[in-house]
Design a protein around this nucleic acid. Structure first.
Length: 237
DNA sequence: GCGACAG
DNA sequence: ATCTTGTCGC
């Protein structure tokens, strides 16, 4: 496990953060199909918080895309870098996520984020941001529709409907388990929407959420618990 | 102006 | 995200 510092020049206000998004958005690559589903490696990233102690823990878990077996994993712990503000989630999660990715012993391949990419008020969500910063292909799978609208997809697994920002399709509501609430998929960087959905289905053989995010979620919670129970914290009592 | 709002 | 036990069901 590694420790993270808040990067120099990291936005301190919402206004600065929005300016960063507006500047980086132009670097998003949307015309690449991305790696074929079921091949190479797929990495899940997620973050857990202890706002009380101002601690954040991130995890990156690399899976073999064909077998979904864990190939490598890494965690990072640090200080919370930004408050939670809808639309600015990336500024809260990215420093720790970058550190976890850096700590991996192998290339991450495609990165699956817990949240949105293009489906974002300024079309630059967490997955887009992480993609532009790392150059890696990224996509976002969110559990909630945020401010967007959608029609309920058919009940069968694989069914989907457009996720809409007014008239604009910013992602898809994708059914990963028959009869269960869909997930909300959007493109991050260097991946097509069709491919993003195909990857999401390949990663959900048994549960609603991708194996990548399930693994990363479990790991970052463990890391947070360890950081909160570790020697340096116990001494404070 | 007020409320809603990924995690 | 996080606070949180038991409980219904495959």
């Amino acid at each position: 496990m590694t420790t993270v510092d808040i990067p120099a020049g990291w936005p301190a206000t919402e206004e600065q953060a929005r300016a960063v998004q507006d500047e980086l958005r132009a670097k998003t690559v949307l015309d690449e199909p991305g790696p074929p589903p079921g091949t190479g490696r797929v990495t899940g990233v997620d973050v857990a918080y202890d706002d009380e102690r101002d601690i954040v823990a991130a995890a990156a878990v690399v899976l073999d895309a064909a077998t979904l077996e864990v190939v490598a994993e890494a965690t990072a712990v640090g200080r919370v870098s930004f408050p939670y503000v809808p639309g600015l989630l990336a500024f809260r999660e990215i420093p720790a996520v970058l550190a976890a990715l850096d700590a991996l012993p192998c290339p991450p391949g495609l990165v699956v984020c817990d949240g949105y990419g293009r489906a974002h008020p300024r079309r630059f969500g967490l997955a887009s941001h992480l993609g532009v910063l790392t150059g890696l292909p990224t996509l976002g799978v969110a559990k909630n529709p945020f401010t967007f609208t959608y029609d309920d997809p058919e009940a069968r697994r694989g069914a989907w409907t457009p996720l809409l920002a007014g008239p604009e399709e910013v992602g898809r509501a994708l059914r990963t388990r028959a009869g269960v609430k869909p997930v909300f998929v959007s493109v991050g960087h260097r991946v097509s929407l069709d491919n993003a959905c195909a990857h999401t289905l390949a990663l959900t053989p048994a549960y609603r959420l991708p194996e990548t995010t399930r693994r990363a979620d479990a790991l970052c919670r463990r890391a947070l618990r360890a950081a909160t129970t570790g020697p340096e914290v116990r001494e404070a009592y």
